[in-house]
Amino acid sequence: MTAPIISVRSLDVHYGSVTALHDVSFDIAPNEITGLIGASGSGKSTFLRSLNRMLDHLPTVRMGGTITIGGENILHEKTDVVRLRRRVGMVFQNPTPFPKSVFDNVAYGLEIQGIRNPRKSFLSLTRLRIQHQELEASDDPIDQAVVRSLKEAALWEEVKHRLHHSAYRLSGGQQQRLCIARAIAIRPDILLLDEPCSSLDPLSTRCIEQLLLGLKKDYTILIVTHNLQQARRIADHVGFFHTGELVEFGTAKEIFGGPGKTLTREYVEGAFG
């Protein structure tokens, strides 16, 4: 295994008096897809959200241990969470486009870094009139980032003629790919996905799985999923969580082939029926 990009050591998370995660330690290698599986309430989503400090907004949360990303302990109280989140992107369970145009959705992450959006649509009153060929040839950083991200998210061909349309006019699967495009527009190192396919049909799910397999050459991907086949299809490593503890972590082959722990075997086999 190459040098890990994320090292987790003795991570504890408490919500008030409830322990959500207890003593979680493992390493995640770069440019791999790591699947996190487990029953609901097992702590896998909590783990994912501690990687970009999205738990900070909950009032009673307490965290202990260390998570080292790129040599820096991100649980340190002096950590700049805004900068952290630019390095660690996140896609949520349900597609969450903003009520803006397709173009503006993807451009948002760059805009908030202070880069001027050349295609700013004011209250969706002004339309993006530019042709997609022109946009592809543009040397404006936002134009370039939008085109690149939409292409990487395998969405460009489907939306290049309606970049000015509201993101809500896209289908559910397209919306979720738009959210992936939005997340990768700012070029994070790590991409976190929290059950990204749970509200999608099988075809869209397959499309996103293909997309993730293509993206892993540029990004380190962590995906929480309750769909074991999905984890088996795309993950390189798999972590199995149960009641707040990481029971087992290994390659997908190990976990699905012959897991070392009985608990893991029961879960994997039980879910296979």
Partner: peptide, 12 residues
């Protein structure tokens, strides 16, 4: 991987 987005310290 080269970062397309550079940090602008002043704007930041």
């Amino acid at each position: 991987m080269e970062a397309v987005v550079t940090d602008h310290p002043q704007g930041e």
